[in-house]
Nucleic acid binder design. Structure first.
Lengths: 233, 233
DNA sequence: ACAAAAGTGTTACACTTACACCCATGT
DNA sequence: ACATGGGTGTAAGTGTAACACTTTTGT
């Protein structure tokens, strides 16, 4: 068991990647970028950044998102480290990956487009450079677990949403279908939703408008404190 | 988004730590070591090791365990990375942590003692150097989740064990008590146990011997393949 | 009027929980 | 005989899953 470091052991570089998930009302999306410069020029990658030896990877990841979107309130969660010796051809680079969820809206989409990012369906991610598909897969699993265990879904939805929206989101995130009646019953029983007086038409073809709900944050905080878990599986 | 590395960004060192859990039939234990040399001489730490820039951290972690115990079949699971910039006073050291479970027996205990390791109760870990208490806490949570979700408990038990053993193990790992009748019913229904014809007396004071069971690995493999989750919470 | 999606209840079954006594054995 | 932990069953309640029709609205 050797835990002393000699100077020539400080030879590793750090990178950070952030998997961002968004939901457009229909499908779950994730953010990718196109790599400039060698190696892998033009290849798709997860938004990523070099971390210098004196930097905090989470800060660097946050700054990356702030620059890309102009938006400042990012709640990142550490995913894991990806550290295969030969994952990067230029040398030993250890990647510390994060993930987060975001409310997709037009301003955000436009800012990102200007910066060269694209949203792709989370269920159909292209081949990515390095080991980024592995990181993406890991993030996907984490999202599944989070969605099952707490009402994280709300961070992907607009402030007001329909029960159909949230059911669709859960179906995308977990990759299965739910019975409408059972889903609603369970969700409403949790008291995490507040019924509003607003209605919206889900599409051109839909005639009858559907009711909008909002997230009961106060209730959620109370439930969390008591160790409540949402659990939908 | 900068993903090009300049040579002077390869300045970070890697370490790996392995949290090892064992169960002695009564209590859940974890392995600690005493640090030699500065800094933190004599402090308790999680078994840890330097990872050179061309090494695979999981291999290094495995070798550490092989050296310490003489035992070679280690199934490590990556926990996470611990990468605060100032977690190590000698420079930027990024720690990639693993955990594993082991059947505690006398040979193992003796080998470890010779190497300067000690088992401490998992519920009462001393203050550790660096951010090792944080790593330990993280491992503890992971163990909880694993125990809930799959019959990982068996990897902590001897080949044959009593229902009281396994209940005690679950109670230690999850930090709560279970009703004996309900616990047994649930466990036996899962068909993951095979009843043997062997009996053992749990202690000097116990008069009636209790029946030994063994793990039904075949059944488990079938169930796993079908996406079965053990789930005890 | 019709097309489209919104919304709504009931029943059977499985699982969970709470609970207390007799049994087998060694001393 | 008694002390010790080993072992067992039942009933009430809760949650889950399967199932199809009516309502509202825009065109």
């Amino acid at each position: 068991m050797r835990v002393e470091f000699s100077p020539d052991e400080f030879k590793v570089a750090l990178a950070t990647s952030v998997v961002v998930f968004g939901f457009d009302g229909e499908n779950l999306k994730t953010l990718v970028a196109q790599k400039k410069g060698q190696p892998y020029e033009g290849a798709w990658i997860i938004p990523s950044c070099v971390v210098k030896a004196d930097e905090n990877p989470e800060h660097v990841a946050k700054e990356l998102l702030v620059r890309a979107t102009g938006q400042t309130d990012w709640l990142l969660e550490k995913l894991n480290v990806f550290a295969d010796p030969y994952r990067n051809p230029v040398g030993r680079v250890v990647n510390i990956a994060y993930y987060c969820t975001v409310r997709l809206d037009d301003t955000l989409a436009n800012n990102l487009q200007r910066e060269g990012y694209s949203w792709v369906p989370a269920s159909d991610v292209p081949i990515l450079a390095y080991d980024h598909n592995e990181i993406m897969e890991y993030a996907r699993e984490r999202l599944k677990r989070r969605v099952k265990r707490r009402p994280i879904g709300f961070s992907l939805l607009p402030a007001e949403f329909t029960l159909n929206n949230i059911q669709r989101l859960y179906e995308c995130a977990l990759g299965k279908r739910f019975d409408k009646r059972n889903f609603r019953r369970k969700l409403l029983k949790s008291q995490l939703l507040i019924e509003t007086d607003h209605f919206i038409r889900s599409s051109e073809r839909a005639k009858r408008p559907s009711r909008l709900y909002k997230f009961n944050e106060k209730k959620y905080r109370t439930l969390s404190l008591r160790g409540y878990d949402f659990v939908y599986q």
